[in-house]
Design a binder for these strands. Structure first.
Lengths: 211, 211
DNA sequence: CAGAAATTTTTCCGCCACGGCAAGTTTTGC
DNA sequence: GCAAAACTTGCCGTGGCGGAAAAATTTCTG
């Protein structure tokens, strides 16, 4: 394995991560723009400037390539939760890191541009694909495991005997999903941030850390 | 279309339903016994005595073929809910129909036979397959729609303006999923019926129909 | 009941997904 | 530098998937 957890990433590792995210992003972009059915692995490989075979070395298929970006974000959230000052209250830390990832660059509040609408519709359609949903379920399970560990570490409890961390992870995951889905279907379009913020605030009230 | 909703099913329709369930059951059996990866559509078609192409005329793939049995059961539950006497309290009716479908032929309570264990393990493995999970998500959405309509019809409310029916459908669906998953992982093995029964009882208390 | 009409099943065919294997390249570590 | 390790690539066989038209079956009609 890699004994060092982070900093001195060799050139090789950096390049790998680079192509990995490039492939994932390319897959998402093409599928949102053209629709799931109208994208072949060959198209994706072409956009990312690698061979078809290389795409397959990274991902087992379009679905996994798309879900990968989702996993990365969830894992990043768990990591950032660990990086928060230990003195900060649990739910303040959670709200902070989650909103930092999902808040995004606040859209100009005015009327939605035609291209923004096309993108939203494309994403919604893409997310409806069963092949992708399955992969997302899998991704969420993995991500929630990591998040639960981060929570357990923070409040100093054993994840094996205390369900609280898992509960928090599951609930935060569910809230994120609902918020995203809401922002994709709401009319007029709504930003994810504020909705998610209110949800987390309510959840925090009901789920204060056990004494 | 078919103006008559049911009874006088022609020979043709009967045969179609027959091969449909035959294909679905064959797919489930083979995948549970051999594992998802080790089953080709050709194998399934062979078992069901039809051509590979015919399998494809019925289902888009293994996943859909398996999920089909699940959908049928859920839709059957919704139908049976409609058939219950209108005087029966809502949650009594729900509990009745759900347990009738999920109760199954009560297993002999003694030690689990080796083959029963293999089956349980096979099912658990199969259900972990992302391709299948996606299809199940889709199936649940459809089934819950039907169930919600049945509930709305029963308590005489408009499903478009009242969330109660949808809530009940979602909750019953979730309880069913959890109960099944629990019965597949619990040690020692547990029957679905009793677990589900208790869950529904609790839910009924919290979700009495709105005045 | 024969023959037409409608529908399903099957055969044939091509495209794409998927993954093992054996070069060909690039990065790493000494 | 140079050899080993790791990554990329092309090749190719198996299987999933679906369009199109022939063959078989059921249903309809005179």
């Amino acid at each position: 394995m890699t004994p060092d957890a982070d900093a001195p990433l060799g050139l090789r590792e950096r390049k790998k991560r680079e192509t990995r995210v490039a492939l994932s992003r390319a897959t998402i972009r093409l599928c949102v723009e053209r629709g799931w059915e109208n994208v072949t692995v060959e198209d994706i490989a072409a956009v990312a400037n690698v061979s078809v075979r290389t795409f397959r070395n990274y991902f087992s298929g379009k679905a996994e390539a798309i879900a990968a970006s989702h996993v990365e974000r969830m894992l990043r959230i768990a990591d950032e939760l660990r990086a928060r000052p230990a003195t900060e209250p649990l739910w303040d830390a959670i709200t902070g890191v989650v909103l930092a990832e999902f808040g995004g660059p606040a859209e100009p509040a005015g009327a939605e541009s035609p291209q923004a609408r096309r993108w939203r519709d494309g994403v919604r359609l893409m997310l409806a694909e069963p092949a992708l949903q399955g992969e997302i379920v899998k991704a969420n399970a993995a991500a929630q495991g990591a998040f639960a560990e981060a929570v357990a570490e923070r409040i100093g409890s054993d994840p094996a005997h205390d369900v609280y961390p898992k509960l928090v992870a599951a609930v935060v995951g569910a809230a994120s999903s609902v918020a995203v889905e809401h922002s994709l279907t709401a009319e007029p379009p709504t930003a994810v941030g504020p909705v998610l913020a209110e949800m987390l605030e309510r959840l925090a009230v009901g789920l204060r850390a056990p004494s």
